[in-house]
Amino acid sequence: MPTKINDLNKFFGDFQALKDINLTTEEGEFIAILGPSGCGKTTLLRLLAGFTSPTDGEIYMDDVLVGNNKNSVPPEKRNLNMVFQSFALWPHMNVGDHIKFALQHHRHMKRLSGAALDERIDEVLSIVGLEAFKNRLPGDLSGGQKQRVSLARAIAPKPKLLLMDEPLSNLDAELRIEMRREIQNIHNITEASIIYVTHDQGEALAMADRIIVMNEGRIEQIGRPEEIYSNPATPFVATFVGKANLFKGEWKDDGFQPENTDLIWHNSNISEDFMKAGIYPLRPEQISLAKSEGGMLKGTVMTKQFQGKEYHYSVDVNGQTVIVHLPLRENYEIGEIVSIEPNPN
C-alpha cells in the first residue's frame, strides 16, 4: 500500500517526539525504520496504525487521507495489520484458531466459511512452516514458533500493509537470523508493503529495500541499505550504521588533513555534513595498517580478536580508539606501533 507522510509532527505535552517527518513509500516496498531507543520510530508506527493522531501534518494511504490533527481513521478501518514486539497470543486458542480469528474479524477480508476457511488457514500455516502445529496451544510452542503464529495471524487476511514493531527482539541471536529469512520469504509471497521498526542495523541492512534512519525525532537519511552503509549522510548515520571511525581535521581544496599531521586524504563521496564538521569517516574495513613509517598517522595496537576470516583490531590514535578489520594475512601484535591510512580499495 503506497503511503505518504507530509510535515508530520507529534507532541506529548511539551515533548516533541516527531519533527517534520516527510516520507513516501511505494506499493510492495519493504521499509525499515532504524534508530536508537527514544528516537521516535515506534511513535511513527503507531501514527501509521491509527493508534494515535498527529499534532500536525497528514498521513495518506492509497491516496486517501487517514490522519491529521482533526480526524484519524481508526486502525480497523485501515487495510493493515501489526506484528508486535510481544507475541500477543491467546493462551486458550490453538494455532489454527488464531488464524481463523484473524480471517473472521478483519474488516477488509472477504468472509470465508467451511472448506474455503480451512483451506486459507492451511495455506497460511504452510507459508510459515507450521502445518504440523495447527492444534498446538501457545504454551506448547517455542519462541520462534510463537513468532511464526504472530506473523501468520497478521498475513492471513491479506492486508495491504504490515507494520512490524521490533518483532524479533525477544528471540535469541541465531533464531533472529532464521526469522529474517522467514520475514523476507513472507514479503516475497504476499507482496504486501512492510514498514518494519528496529534498533538492529543488521536486520535493517539484511531485509529492507530502503532504510529510514531516525535520531531524536528526525529523519537523518533515507536510502537503500548499500547507500546508507557506503555513503552515510551525517556523522550519526556513520556511527550508528556500521560503526564508522570519525577522524577530526580540516577540509581543504585538495582533500582532508587529519589533525596534527601534514597528510592529505582525498575526498571519496563524503557528504557536506562531514565537511562542515571537519570530520572524515572511515569504516573498519576501509582502513589500512602498515609498519610504522615517518610522516604517517600513527597508533598503538591495543587489542586483537580472531574472527574466523579476519582480525579485528582496536588501535589507540592520540587517545582515540580506532576499530580496524583486516584479512588474516595482515597480522599485527598487541603493543605494535602502526601507521593508519584510508584503504584505496
Rank of each mutant, 00 (worst) to 15 (best):
K248D: 15
L125R: 12
Q286G: 06
E27N: 12
A102F: 01
P232H: 02
R329P: 05
T234Q: 00
P2Y: 03
A32C: 10
T198F: 05
D14H: 13
L151G: 03
F84V: 14
E272H: 10
H92A: 02
G139P: 09
A156T: 06
A102K: 04
D7H: 15
G129I: 14
E293S: 14
N231P: 00
N231I: 09
S271L: 05
F30L: 11
F15S: 10
M296L: 06
T239M: 00
N345K: 14
H92I: 06
R283K: 12
T239I: 02
E166C: 13
A152E: 04
S268E: 14
L130N: 01
F240L: 07
G223T: 08
L125A: 08
T239Q: 11
P91R: 00
V83Y: 04
N260G: 03
L161Y: 01
E216S: 15
I228W: 00
V237N: 04
F240Y: 10
I264R: 07
L171H: 01
T3F: 03
Q305D: 11
D20G: 12
R111V: 10
G35D: 10
M275G: 06
P344A: 00
A192L: 02
F12Q: 01
H199L: 10
I189P: 02
Q221Y: 02
E330T: 10
Q104R: 15
P232T: 06
F51T: 13
N260D: 10
E76Q: 11
E216T: 14
P232Q: 06
A208H: 11
L47Y: 01
I334A: 10
L112D: 01
D62N: 15
K100M: 02
N94R: 05
A49K: 08
L130H: 05
K110E: 13
H312W: 09
M93K: 14
M1C: 13
V241F: 03
Y280G: 13
N215E: 04
G40R: 01
L48S: 04
K134L: 07
P327H: 04
M214V: 07
F236C: 09
Y332S: 11
Q305A: 14
F51R: 08
L141G: 13
F274D: 09
I21M: 01
H108Q: 07
T24A: 12
L282G: 11
V338W: 03
V64N: 14
K134H: 03
Y313T: 11
I211H: 05
S37A: 11
A192P: 03
Q85V: 09
G249Q: 00
E119Y: 02
I287Y: 07
E272C: 08
T239L: 00
S314Q: 11
V66K: 04
G299W: 00
K304F: 10
K41A: 07
